[in-house]
Computed example of a mutant assay.
Amino acid sequence: MAWTVPAVISRTKGAPVETVDIVVPEPVAGEVVVDVAACGVCHTDLHYREGGINDDYPFLLGHEAAGTVSAVGEGVTNVAPGDPVVLNWRAVCGQCRACKRGRPQYCFATHNASQSMTLTDGTPLSPALGIGAFTPKTLVAAGQATKIDTSVLGDSWDPAVAGLLGCGVMAGIGAAVNTAPVQRGDTVAVIGCGGVGCAAVAGAVLAGARRVIAVDLDDKKLSWAEQLGATHTVNSRGLDEDGVVAAIAEVTDSFGADVVIDAVGRPETWRQAFYGRDLAGTVVLVGVPTPEMQLQVPLLDVFGRGGALKSSWYGDCLPERDFPQLLELHAAGRLPLDAFVSERIGLDDVEEAFATMKRGDVLRSVVVF
């Protein structure tokens, strides 16, 4: 059977989103259908709407989601109907050279469902990050559904909170914990304190950083970072590159930070990260640059300062390992994931949520079904 359900789509570049009926097909081999309980409104969804990802319109938006498996296709063994799951956009293949070398978090052949969800006239939809979850039912590859044992989470299980691990929160925490990785006693600076940057702050605190310095242009975002454990803040409005570097040095005994995480992804913020770290320190780029951006740094400085220059894609996470562990840490009171849910909204409120996001008024708006 197939299901007809309402969903939020982006039909053309830059146009407001629409709520329309779509068709979700019965899952075939390797696929599952999930009843979505909640889905965060991520900046990546706005990028899709504005043509910043590709032009494969119409898009079915939404990807930071959690819910319950309702149907499975042939051969699916990792989940069963009734299982609580958090969705991810990197179903690993198990066969590529990264997977065979024991590094599935770097899988080079991640995949999505083989079938398309469609408009009622049969037009195929392009699901955001292979998920498409601004709808009460979605079709994904089985490996995109990470089973969660809610019995160990107690009252802390909340799909609106858990779903945020599907993208931005995992990207930030993983940049600190997996990619850097931050060590106990390190000093850490995070440049850009939106959802991903604040998650990086939380990740650095979780890893045992001695000092965590939050850098942003907006005092509201710096306040969020403090609530998540930042020990120092730097409002960089009006500061040039040298001024930001000096401000980081001032709270790191003049040496610079052991780890600097760039959660903005611009050449100027990357250079701030590069020069704001200690000798032999680590730079982690987790903010996503645009295709036209170019970086110029003297090669001698790269050689002379040593250390590591890294990029972090989805926090170098392995969902089946990281999602349950982080939710258990949240249940134990060691990771305040609920702090990222700024508001709970309805399906028809997504366009307004984009405006709220642009104003910097929220860490995350979450659609709740």
Results as ranks from 00 to 15, higher is better:
Asp158Ile: 12
Phe340Val: 04
Thr150Gln: 02
Gly197Phe: 01
Asp219Val: 05
Arg321Leu: 09
His43Trp: 06
Leu285Phe: 10
Phe354Asn: 03
Leu60Thr: 11
Leu165Gly: 01
Ala65Trp: 09
Ser10Asn: 08
Val201Gln: 07
Gly203Asp: 07
Pro104Ile: 06
Ile53Tyr: 06
Ala37Phe: 11
Ser342Phe: 12
His330Asn: 13
Val259Ser: 05
Ala109Tyr: 08
Ala145Phe: 00
Gly346Cys: 12
Glu268Trp: 13
Asn78Gln: 10
Thr150Lys: 05
Trp89Thr: 09
Ala353His: 02
Leu129Tyr: 00
Leu300Glu: 15
Ala189Lys: 14
Asp361Met: 15
Leu46Pro: 04
Val23Leu: 13
Met117Trp: 01
Gly203Gln: 08
Cys42Asn: 08
Gly75Cys: 07
Gly168Ala: 13
Val41Arg: 00
Ala29Tyr: 08
Thr68Val: 14
Met170Asn: 15
Pro27Val: 05
Leu326Met: 12
Val188Lys: 02
Phe255Ser: 14
Ile53Glu: 06
Val190Arg: 02
Gly30Pro: 07
Leu165Phe: 04
Ala91Phe: 01
Ile9Pro: 01
Met293Asp: 13
Arg237Phe: 14
Phe303Leu: 15
Ala207Tyr: 08
Gln144Ala: 12
Leu285Asp: 08
Ser114Cys: 01
Met1Tyr: 12
Tyr57Pro: 00
Ile248Tyr: 05
Asn78Asp: 05
Asp45Leu: 03
Gly256Arg: 11
Arg334Thr: 12
Pro136Asp: 00
Glu226Lys: 14
Asp361Glu: 14
Ala353Ser: 14
Asp218His: 15
Val297Asp: 07
Thr118Asn: 04
Pro6Ser: 10
Val32Met: 01
Thr123Trp: 08
Leu337Ile: 01
Asp240Met: 00
Gln227Met: 11
Asp361Thr: 12
Glu64Gln: 00
Asp349Val: 08
Glu50Arg: 11
Trp270Thr: 15
Pro84Trp: 06
Gly360Trp: 06
Gly229Glu: 02
Arg266Asn: 11
Gly304Asp: 10
His330Lys: 11
Ser223Ala: 14
Met170Leu: 15
Leu165Ala: 04
Pro84Thr: 06
Asp186Arg: 07
Arg49Tyr: 00
Ile213Leu: 03
Ala273Phe: 04
Ala353Leu: 01
Gly30Ser: 09
Gly75Gln: 06
Leu347Cys: 14
Val244Cys: 02
Gly62Gln: 06
Gly315Asn: 01
Phe134Cys: 00
Val72Leu: 07
Gly315Arg: 00
Cys96Met: 04
Asp45Ser: 07
Glu328Ala: 15
Pro267Gln: 14
Asp240Pro: 02
Thr110Val: 10
Gly203Lys: 01
Val264Leu: 11
Gly166His: 10
Ile148Asp: 04
Gly306Pro: 11
Gln296Val: 09
Ala332Asp: 10
Ala176Asp: 05
